[in-house]
Design a binder for these strands. Structure first.
Lengths: 277, 277
DNA sequence: TTGACAGATGACCGGTTAGTCAGTATTATA
DNA sequence: TATAATACTGACTAACCGGTCATCTGTCAA
């Protein structure tokens, strides 16, 4: 698939030079294809960046969300969270650079909407982690501040190794941030970000997906797949969506079946979110 | 002065659309002048952004540095620091937006050098504040982490009100961050950023200004000024630079004389830094 | 009224861009 | 092998960019 190749090379160039400073010509030259061929795979340069963002953010968001949802009591969830975040940044450092460089760009409306959307998803995940870690009511007052601090830690420390290619000790980094986060969670008493404030910022509200929306995506996915365990799982999950019959264990198992395939990872995240598993 | 007008309108447009997405044509249209007139005030579009950056960062850097250097024992320096930072962001929110949007842009070498330079200056100031607040040796191990966390707080929370124009309670915000910072400073035990790591990042080293460099800037400034208390102060400070005769009190007084004038603010910062006052 | 001159103008230049499309090459099918 | 379908090419377009410069304008002193 040419699409794959174009995306890979484009990510390299965007990371090095930025989106606007990279021309379609340059991308095609690096791919060894013609300019026309580019427009067979993508309708426009904007569509390319949107697809890149989607590809990585879907992976990233669902991976972290899975981690939080499936954390066992007693294990160090926070440590795993930080480790996964930074490990992901390290593995996909070129994409990370794009994310930071273009994070608040205003050249394209769709782009901003996309970024805000994924940012909100991450907020939701971090918030549910905070509630799970420290007890919903215990940190009630400062939980939104905690989300902000955690995001602050993430962004500051990831800049460190995105822009200086030095092998960093991720274990130490995660341990250090766990301690810092715990200190804040257990001792901070003066919240700044209140529930009301959050609601103002989150206008318009991030609605939960309706059953119908998920069904739509699900049907699309099923159509495109060949016969396999994954397809069977999807069909069963579709049935469950229309008329609940299975218990949590079966649903969880079915989701597990489709979680590790790029094509179905997003569906797995959506369904997990809907069934609250 | 046309320069002033152009800079003002350019800042508005850069904040809204970004630097690259704003054309010289657009700027001149917003000013009601011709394209040619633009090039009478600035050699190029790049020179414009550099001048904007310098104009604000000199003001910002020297203001914060003065605050830290002249903090009295017992007063809440940290609170004043946070308050000043956020107040400045609020006052110059358009510039703040540019700073965040273009912070890691790679379109212009000079621009990146400039940004890194001011970033380092801020690091230095924050570090000296941390040492002053918590004792040089007490926080020896985690002081660099503290600098990072403080910067993380700054960037996360300033994004809040740069991109949502809601009147925020700066007093509460500052108080809240003071508590968080103190918690980390007094209880954190696991450092991640070591002195060695910092040195790698700061390559090449940020050298202290030599006497000669300051003298050069000083002479330039003196040349351009008309007779005034400020000019007299500059002349005396120049003498002091060549041959130290005055005590700290006099130097501090002289610096105070020139601190609040846009033209001499930078010199005041440089000299304060050199005399360590 | 004249002339000199700084300040301002906008048509213009060379260069680059995203995107198009008529035509060519490659592969699949019959 | 002939034909149809698909994949690919790169010259081309229209628009826009930063920057230049011959020309014009308004304001002075003489």
């Amino acid at each position: 698939m040419k699409k794959q190749l174009i995306m890979e090379k484009a990510i390299e160039l965007f990371a090095k030079q930025g989106f606007e400073a990279t021309s379609v010509q340059q991308i095609t030259e690096h791919c060894g294809i013609s300019k026309g061929a580019f427009y067979l795979s993508f309708k426009s340069k904007d569509e390319l960046i949107i697809e890149i963002i989607d590809h990585f953010m879907i992976q990233f968001t669902s991976e972290i969300d899975y981690l939080v949802r499936n954390a066992r009591e007693g294990e160090n969830l926070l440590y795993k969270f930080y480790y996964a975040i930074f490990d992901s940044f390290r593995k996909h450092s070129d994409f990370g650079k794009i994310l930071i460089k273009e994070q608040s760009r205003s050249f394209n409306e769709d782009f901003i909407v996309k970024m805000r959307y994924y940012d909100r998803l991450m907020d939701k995940t971090i918030l549910s982690m905070v509630e799970r870690l420290y007890g919903d009511d215990k940190v009630k007052e400062i939980k939104y501040d905690l989300v902000f601090c955690i995001k602050g830690f993430m962004s500051m420390y990831s800049q460190l190794f995105l822009f200086y290619n030095i092998p960093l000790d991720l274990d130490l980094l995660s341990t250090s941030l766990v301690e810092k986060t715990n200190l804040l969670a257990k001792n901070a008493t003066i919240p700044f970000i209140s529930k009301g404030l959050i609601e103002v910022f989150e206008e318009p509200k991030l609605e939960d997906l309706t059953k119908e929306q998920i069904l739509l995506t699900l049907d699309q996915e099923i159509e495109e797949m060949e016969e396999s365990v994954e397809k069977e799982s999807l069909l069963l999950l579709k049935q469950q969506l229309i008329e609940p019959t299975f218990g949590r264990a079966i649903i969880k198992g079915l989701l597990e079946n489709i979680r590790n395939h790029p094509q179905t990872r997003w569906i797995s995240y959506l369904l997990g979110s809907f069934f609250n598993i």
